[in-house]
Design a binder for these strands. Sequence first.
DNA 1: GCATGATCATGC
DNA 2: GCATGATCATGC
Length: 445
Amino acid sequence: MSQALPYDITSPESILEYAKGLSGKTLEEVADLPDFVENIKDKGDLGKMVERYYFGHVPPNNHDPDFAEAGVELKTTGVKTLKNGEYRAKERLVLTNIDYNALDREEWLTNTLLTKCGLMLLLFYYYEKIAIYKRRFVYEPLLWSFPATDLEIIKKDWETIKQKIRDGKAHELSEGDTFYLGACRKGSGGEKEPLKTQPYSEIKAKARAFSLKPSYINTILDNHAQPALIKNQDDASMGLEELVERKFAPYFGKTIEEISDMLDFHKPSKNHKGFGKSLVMRILGTTKKTIPEFEKADIEMKLLTLNRSGTPTEYLQFPTFDYMKIVDEDWIDSSFYAKLEKKFLFVVFQVGQDKEVRLSKTVFWNMPYADRLQAKQVWEDTKYLVANHKAELQYLPKISDDRVAHVRPHGANNTTALFPTPQGDMLPRLGFWLNKKYIAEQINK
DNA sequence: GCATGATCATGC
DNA sequence: GCATGATCATGC
């Protein structure tokens, strides 16, 4: 115990700082592992291995937290990715075993669960079927304590579990009994698993542990390190437009494949339609679906590809409408109106002479007032026609009828997914679209 | 290349 | 099963 540790073992913040050295790394890369490491089979050992070989600390074998002096319990937990690259909990996070006999005598204020797990250092690793010390840590480590509002729920969950034991029903416990805190099965679940005694019944119960449900871990992931564009005062004074431009700058002129390589993020499947959006979100520094600043400013991002003559390859799709509702709706209450009032960020790709698609530019845009009036006219015409028994596509505003917007079908299975009209007909779903030429004209201004 | 119509992939 | 956003197919 004489060797000085590279962190202060009594300080949670210091432990967290040192833990950051694991970010993006595998244990193998940052710690000297012993030769017999290949023989370690217990998957729960990653946490122990991190403590021993990275932190140089052997935790006490009792009910105290791993770093008892700092009150910090270290937990490693696996995450997986959705096809859009977003992280999700691989499984529940097991906190501590439930001792049915001891829990019966515990009070909430002094319970062993919170004594041990009230403050946790969470280390997220990307789950793969490889040796645990080869699994890569993702995200920054997180010091986690339960928010007071969550503790209310967890307290109720804890009492529900305790009451079940008092009712002599430990053997009937199930994760569905509770909300955030679960009593999960412990061990492999095979027939040979030893059963536990409980205080108010002769029936032996399966071993269980307190755990946080995967859905709870997911909300931690969602709230953790929500990557904001604005990270400091300099960013803030630069303004969003400039900041976005700077984020994209290294990627202008690059093909999708090149950007994909630069960000080490590849199309999960050949026809994955959300890939472009996910890739652009990564350019902006997030694996999530939203950017806080864009949310606050109500900015909607749209990806566009221009063909070699500078026209978008696709129209811009706007909300569908309901035949029954549009006839009673006012323009300013419509979802089309709401969308057109927004600010857009067009991320523009360009098809080159070599047919490669390259990132070309970004354009912030909001629709000029005169054009909103034009779109309003298209909407009013549509409303009028639907109300007057002319809801079929052939009667509604076509691309060639208006400079700005038109009506087109939208939605899967156009022949069977039909919707009622005020006259009692059943017709396919339609939506509003902005014309290609109009978009081209606007982004080239 | 355009106008028009139709369908796909994903997540909730 | 459905809403949403993305993309394809066809005829001219």
